[in-house]
Design a protein around this nucleic acid. Structure first.
Lengths: 348, 348
DNA sequence: CACTGGATTGTTAGCGCTCACACATGTCGG
DNA sequence: CCGACATGTGTGAGCGCTAACAATCCAGTG
């Protein structure tokens, strides 16, 4: 009477029930921690589970409970330090809550990529999703779409009707700019990130606001694409301006929108024979692990990516459970890290 | 006769069948692209699907087909450039194959972390997993465990009975070391990564082998933990040795096991007043985006992380489909990138 | 001693889908 | 004109689980 396929199939709840001499429902009760099960019965079931190496079938559970216990994450370019760190924070938080995290990465934020990603997640029945899509276009796409599950954003919900978590980018930029002005600089130049990125815009905004509050007319904004190379090009331009020494806005300090570009700027300045920070002070944003070892060590703004990841999972779960109170925007505070790149070595 | 819950429940295959005036089985056939369906019928069904906004329920499918179309990935510290890039490559390849990727990240590779991660994935019924666990201990743990699904490793299956994909780390180290010797250096010092990491061991091995082939007795190995700080400490030690100028092994060239540590080394050398590459040439490994902008731009070994990710998904799918021919180890070739940090500026 | 009610267990009916089959048609050669 | 064969389509069962209900046991009670 032995069925030949027996060995191939993992044990089911019915198998455990038979082994323990109870009904499958009792097994289910034990597994879900139902209180009204006699201790002796519970032990028998537990032993049978152990003996058979039984595991609950998640597909069957998901089918009947209509809950997949899976969360989707959509990330643009998770190769960058920021998104990668956020992702790690998300994973950990979700796992603690008993969720599995499924990630879809986007090369670009444009076009139908986001829609396709949401579709892909929907097809697998995720209960909700976190979108790490810091580009304006992606967020707008997100606002247009109506996926069949709640979505929260990371660094992307500014002014939109989507719940989200973000670092106070503007405050970070303010801290840097104030710091540079306090160090005695007449004005602060700015190398911004790509125009399409919200983070980029917020940092530029913070910088501009501080200058204006001090009655300083903001100099022309230089622009890069987050890459070291683009920073290098911007640095060459700054070097040219510094050496030309044009009147209105002397180049003695620059706030670069991320650390990678700052590295490029530093290199360009050095190649032009300009010393940092003596002649031009430079500050970045992100505090990547390398920042403390740049030539010179870089003043920057630290983001607590782990906290951002954790808070966004919290927020998403609230929306999944339906306990969320409206459309909330959680803001995480940045921290200024002062290093040699903005410290006048001769004690100015 | 309207059921009040109707609106809450997403449409099922039966709903579509009713709408299209066919049986649920015909809907299923249309969805799975079965050839024997009349074109007119197919169109009716497609239209009904469209009208109702129907999506197949993945849980129900997984239950009956015993296939979840989900792949698990276990990654240690996905904040590092290498793992993050590999992850991105994996994601993309898996998605192209119609799989969802669920990621579990480990803070440490030690203890039961790996087992827990596999458990977590098993509980969700993944069909297979890729382990990016480059530590010796994790790989050994992996070899001990017998998860209920195939597992392939990235950078971790050396000498073990587990299929995997890895870069030829040893070849990379050989290329660097040969390059440095060819530039005229009498010997090459080495700053290694953590002892527990297989990649670290392989790079050290390649370096040692080349020196021995040239009849050079390898100098003492300095050791870091991949971080810029640890590289900085190693660099200080190197600087001390260089300035002391002890007989047997002059410090004129160093092969550092990754780019981040190389940054630390460069900084320490500069602080000690040692010029790179004139007095000491430095080379790294990984080719992180910043490497080309280090002071000076870093000679390093480029890894094609995207290819590694892609190949490992291929390999895993072969094992899932059962078409795999034994335990295969795929090796990807590295590429030497020569930059200023090893070029004698005065044309030596 | 039947009667109530809580604790404990079993029974039944699906969840939404795919598979194996049965049942229609239509087409063709003998 | 009938069977053999292909092409379409429908029917029933069942994947492994949970939720609702039903059934049992066993005190304590009047």
């Amino acid at each position: 009477m032995t069925r030949p396929t027996e060995a191939l199939r993992p044990p089911t709840m019915a198998d455990v029930a038979r082994e323990a001499g109870v009904s499958h429902q009792t097994v289910s009760r034990v597994l879900s921690g139902h209180p009204n099960v006699r201790t002796t019965t519970r032990d028998q079931v537990t032993a049978a589970i152990e003996r058979l190496g039984y595991r609950r079938n998640s597909a069957a559970r998901a089918l009947v409970t209509r809950r997949s216990r899976t969360i989707g994450v959509i990330a643009v370019d998770p190769t960058l330090y920021g998104p990668a760190s956020t992702l790690a924070g998300l994973q950990e938080a979700a796992r603690d809550e008993g969720y599995l995290v499924s990630t879809v990465t986007l090369r670009t934020g444009g076009g139908h990529a986001l829609e396709d990603a949401l579709d892909h997640l929907a097809a697998w029945g995720v209960e909700g999703a976190v979108a790490i899509t810091p580009q304006r276009s992606s967020v707008q796409a997100l606002a247009r779409l109506t996926p069949p599950f709640p979505v929260v954003t990371v660094e992307g919900s500014h002014g939109l009707d989507i719940p989200g978590v973000s670092l106070d980018q503007e405050l970070g930029a303010r801290l840097v700019t104030e710091h540079l002005l306090a160090t005695g600089h007449e004005t602060v130049w700015h190398v911004a990130g790509p125009e399409d990125w919200l983070e980029s815009a917020a940092r530029t905004e913070g910088w501009r606001a501080v200058l204006e509050e001090h009655g300083i007319r903001p100099p022309r904004v230089l622009r890069g694409d987050w890459s070291p190379l683009s920073g290098y090009h911007a640095g060459q331009e700054l070097a040219g301006l510094a050496l030309a020494g044009r009147g209105a806005a002397p180049v003695t300090a620059a706030f670069v929108a991320n650390d990678q570009m700052a590295l490029g700027v530093l290199r360009a300045l050095r190649e032009a024979g300009i010393r940092t920070p003596r002649q031009v002070a430079v500050a970045g944003f992100d505090d990547i692990p390398e920042a403390g070892f740049f030539p010179p060590p870089l003043t920057t703004v630290r983001q607590d990516f782990t906290a951002i990841g954790r808070r966004s999972i919290q927020l998403l779960l609230e929306h999944i459970e339906g306990t969320a109170a409206g459309v909330e925007h959680i803001v995480v505070e940045p921290q200024l890290i002062v290093r040699a790149s903005t410290r006048s070595q001769d004690g100015a």
